[in-house]
């Protein structure tokens, strides 16, 4: 017994079982912990039963995960709205407005009146962090790692600005208030639909799972839009004039929302960049040639060591730990 394991005296069987379950799932569990767990299991039949109950609950929640998460989000939406009233705009936004007027405006916002201009709400995630957002209009957004959104909900439109980042949007239908996303040199226009929008290293990728999304150059709001519908993916590079449309498995692009990165014939450099944003150590390819290796596979993003192990098994590269991160190198010989 290491002393870190749950003691036999504290709490009922359910609590002790929960403590063991969590301890043994942790990255720091040792062989000693498992031996102590074995002694605990053998000590009373109720212990084994309590532990098995947890295991079957755990597995049950796996098989129902998508429906559970959707139901939890739905249950949380009204609560989230109540918990986050629109933030009072900071005064520095109106350097030209007198303090009394600013105070009056702040009071107006507080009472739910929406003046112009309204400062955007900023949502951002750190590398490795994924967030679920419930916007006040009912739109659900999952924000992928290392991403930033500025959101302004006003009476005539819902406006989002996205810099470098990725998010999956499930936009609440509201014909009177279009949902507009400013991303790179393009504008995405939505009425109500579900899509994934990725803007990384100057490349925009828009994948639609439900409904129709329109995309225009940001500086030509009257131009004829490119229309992307379900099962399609649009790609565009900042600064170029054209866009490309392809038929895809839309679910692939949403894989990250359930802890999976799905690649079909993508360069290894993209995989490395995605993983770098997700884990603590920067991951790079040894040279441009290695970066061009094509990769196809699904990476479950549970932890860095396991992901690198799978990447090695699928792609024929070796992950080498160096002082400032991880370098992917072509394996010298096939396994």
């Amino acid at each position: 017994m290491t002393g870190r394991g749950p003691g036999q005296g504290q709490g009922g069987a359910a609590e002790q079982a929960a403590a063991w379950f969590v301890r043994l799932q942790g990255e720091t569990a040792t062989g000693e912990d498992w031996l102590a767990f074995e002694r605990w299991l053998a000590a009373a039949p109720a212990h084994a039963l309590a532990y098995e109950r947890l295991e079957s609950l755990w597995v049950e929640m796996d098989s129902d995960a998508p429906r559970l998460v959707a139901a939890l989000d739905a249950a949380q939406r009204p609560a989230a709205r109540a918990a986050h009233p629109p933030a009072r705009p900071p005064r520095w936004l109106w350097p030209a407005i007198g303090a009394p007027l600013a105070a009056g405006l702040a009071a107006a916002v507080w009472l739910g009146v929406q003046p112009h201009p309204q400062p955007p709400a900023i949502y951002q995630t750190a590398p490795g962090e994924v967030r679920q957002l419930a916007l006040a209009d009912g739109t659900a957004v999952r924000l992928n790692v290392a991403s930033r959104l500025a959101v302004t909900l006003s009476a005539d439109a819902r406006r989002v600005q996205m810099a470098d980042g990725e998010a999956a949007f499930d936009v609440a239908h509201d014909a009177a208030r279009p949902f507009l996303i400013q991303v790179g040199d393009r504008q995405v226009r939505v009425v109500g639909t579900e899509f994934d929008l990725r803007h990384r290293d100057g490349e925009l990728r828009l994948t639609v799972r439900r409904g129709v999304v329109e995309l225009r150059p940001a500086d030509a709001p009257d131009a004829a839009p490119a229309r992307v519908t379900l099962g399609q993916q649009l790609t565009h590079r900042d600064g170029e004039t054209g866009v490309q449309l392809a038929a895809v498995e839309a679910d692939d692009a949403f894989g990250w929302t359930t802890g999976q990165l799905v690649y079909r014939d993508r360069p290894l450099s993209e995989v490395a960049a995605d993983l770098s944003r997700r884990f603590a150590s920067p991951i790079r390819t040894a040279d441009a040639e290695t970066g061009r290796i094509r990769f196809t596979g699904v990476l479950v993003t549970d932890n860095e060591a396991a992901v690198l192990r799978r990447l090695e098994a699928f792609s024929g590269v070796r992950a080498e730990h160096v002082a400032d991160g991880v370098v992917l190198r072509r394996a010298r010989a096939a396994r």
Binding site: G26, E27, L68, V130, G259, V300, D302
Partner: peptide, 10 residues
């Protein structure tokens, strides 16, 4: 939710 459904380690 982060550990169970988003698959993040402790």
């Amino acid at each position: 939710r982060m550990h169970k459904f988003e698959g993040l380690s402790h």
